[in-house]
Structure formats: structure tokens, C-alpha cells
Design a binder for these strands. Structure first.
Lengths: 180, 180
DNA sequence: GTGGCTCCATACGGTGCCGTATGGAAGCGA
DNA sequence: TCGCTTCCATACGGCACCGTATGGAGCCAC
């Protein structure tokens, strides 16, 4: 068996799905075991505790949904297109796992990951705004504004979608206002 | 004894405090009873169930932190000052109870209140933008952008304050960008 | 001062989760 | 074939919470 067993992977994937659908409370040993059709005996073979699963799940999210997309978007030449691509995601495919993690920042590992993601994303956007000619300080502030709008819109998309209305029109409006 | 007993009020106030500090999970019968130095016997005299307390707590928040401030700010003549006042709160006094409620939208009463608050606030800001000369549709979109930024910034203030940096400078930047 | 009302304490059963202990089935190498 | 490792099932104790049942202390009316 490989060092990182494939069945441990199975638990981690199920945990990320459960996080998206039911929040961190759903990343729980016995509910997941039921969903997977096994018992806790399996879980405690692969993991030391529930905390270890949570840490693994958060790390998995960070790889797949923070670092991955950021590296992919970095390949885009035009800083304007780069920003569009990032901000557009909030409307097209709302980052539901991310919002679930925001709901669970009382867990220290979650808070740390959320804070890292915020810093990485803001720094990334600030660099793009700098390439568009803004001063260093101004680019940072504009990135903070843009990221705040991103996070807030993701929340509204989940918690009050009927308030949001036409997503495409709003996306254009935001791009026009924040990117220009 | 008055129809709305003063001791029921005491439970509700404690519940709102607990919500702010520990999230909706802290709005629980036995922990609150311990904090108040009484037993569950008291609680189940004043309330039918935990759900009833949650509903009362959410309603209390809506009165004190949504409708109240909105009516107060409505007295401001200049629409620009009105918007400043609303958006400034996210930096000066982060709406921590509100964020806690966003964390708990799985509870139907919470989701309903959060959605109502969003619609009221967006409508209120849209009206202000309209007074500033924007068309109806454009004012609505600008209000959605501003409210998204408000919500997102409130989140960052709690979850990644070190990323946010100088609050006053950011407040000025946001006012300049979104209100003009 | 007695009956009734208000308010709360005590005590109990139930639920859903965490973590541990232990045994057993299946596969694999010698 | 036999022993060892891997992986999981079973069974248990513990904890934190919800809700109910019941009794009792204080107070007020009359």
C-alpha cells in the first residue's frame, strides 16, 4: 500500500463534499462513516482524530481551490483579464466551500487557512492593479476593496440570492467600477 | 407581572451576548442557564423550546441592529453623508453579531432575517444613490456592490484583520471609489 | 391562613457525537 | 501452511446538549 493510502483519500474527498453541503459540523466521523457505508473502525485506522481529518480537509481545499486557481490565472498576460477572471467566479460559480469555511473560523486551523487565502488573493490582485499603473499603496487598497466585494457577493449568493438579481449585469457593473 | 416578563427579557439579552461571542451554538439552554446562575427549569418556564429563544434573539437583533440604525440614518439629509455613515460602520465598529448570523444561515429563521436585512439595506442604499443622480437600475447595482463590499469587509475584519491594515485609509478609499 | 399562581430547582430519559479496545477477515510473504 | 500486516466491525464508556416531569418556595387575594 502506498504511504498515502487510497482509502484515506476516500475519507478526505467525502469530508470536503460534506463540508460543502453541511458545513464543518458535517465533517464528523460517524455521519461520514454512515455516508461511506463503513464504520468508525475504518476512520480511526486512517486518522488519529477528527481534528486530523479537519486539518486534511482544509489543506485539501487550500490546494484545490486557492493555490491551484491562483497559479492557473497567473498565466493570463493582461492584468485586466486576470482580475476579471478572479472576480467573475463569485457570480458564475459561487465559492460555496469557502463560505462554509468562513462560517467555521472558530476552528483555529480554519481561521489560519482563511487568513492565508485572504493575504494571497489580496496580494495577487494588488500586483495586477500595480501593473495597471496604480501606486503600491493604492493598488493594495483597491485589491482590498475588490476582494471584500468578492467575499460579500459570495455571501449574498448563498444567503440572499433573490436580492442579487441579474448576475451577469452585476458582474459587468463591478468590473466597470473596480477595474475600469 | 407584565405580559412580557422582565426575566424573559433577561434570557434574551444573555442570548444575544452569547450569539456575539460564541455563535448560534452558544445560544443553548444549558450553557446560558449556567451563565445566568439558574437552571433549565427557569428557561422552560419562559420559553417553549430553544427554537423559540433563537427566534426571539434573531428578532431582537433585527430591531436593534437593522431597523433601528436604518431609521436613524434616514434622518441624514445629504445622501452622500448617509452612505458614508452606513459604509463607515464596517471599519469603525465591525458588525460582529451580523457575521455570526451569516455563519448560521442553516437555521431557517436566521436565513430569513439575513435575507430581509440584505434587501432592506440594499434598497436603502439604492435610494441614496438614486438621489445622487444614478438611474434606477444603476443605483441598484451600485448598492449591491457597496453592500457586498460592506459584508466582505466585515468578514475580513473578523477573520483576517492583519490583511486589512489601516482601516481609516481604507474607509476613505472605499468612499472615494464607491460614492465619489 | 389557605388556596392558587408564579417562578425556578431537581431529576430523569433520550440523542448524537467522540474516542478506545478488541477481535476478526482477507491478503501476502516465507 | 502459517504467521504477519492491513483494514475494518463491534461494542463500550463518556460528554454535552434537549426536553419533560415533578415538587417546592414565595407571594398575593380573599
Amino acid at each position: 500500500m502506498t504511504p498515502d493510502s487510497l482509502d484515506r483519500e476516500r475519507w478526505e474527498r467525502a469530508a470536503l463534499d460534506a463540508l460543502e453541503r453541511g458545513g464543518l459540523a458535517a465533517v464528523a466521523v460517524e455521519p461520514l462513516a454512515r455516508a461511506l457505508g463503513v464504520t468508525k473502525g475504518s476512520f480511526y485506522w486512517h486518522f488519529k482524530s477528527r481534528g486530523e481529518l479537519i486539518a486534511a480537509t482544509v489543506a485539501r481545499w487550500e490546494r484545490l481551490h486557492v493555490d491551484g486557481p491562483l497559479q492557473a490565472v497567473a498565466a493570463i498576460e493582461d492584468p485586466r483579464d486576470r482580475l476579471m477572471e478572479l472576480l467573475g467566479r463569485a457570480g458564475a460559480k459561487p465559492p460555496s466551500i469557502f463560505i462554509r469555511l468562513l462560517d467555521a473560523v472558530d476552528e483555529p486551523v480554519v481561521r489560519a487557512a482563511v487568513a492565508r487565502a485572504a493575504e494571497e488573493r489580496v496580494a495577487f490582485m494588488a500586483e495586477a492593479f500595480r501593473e495597471l499603473g496604480l501606486t503600491r499603496a493604492r493598488a493594495r487598497r483597491q485589491a482590498l476593496l475588490a476582494y471584500s466585494a468578492y467575499v460579500g457577493r459570495a455571501h449574498l449568493a448563498r444567503d440572499a440570492p433573490q436580492v442579487l438579481g441579474d448576475q451577469a449585469a452585476l458582474s459587468r457593473h463591478i468590473a466597470e467600477q473596480l477595474i475600469g
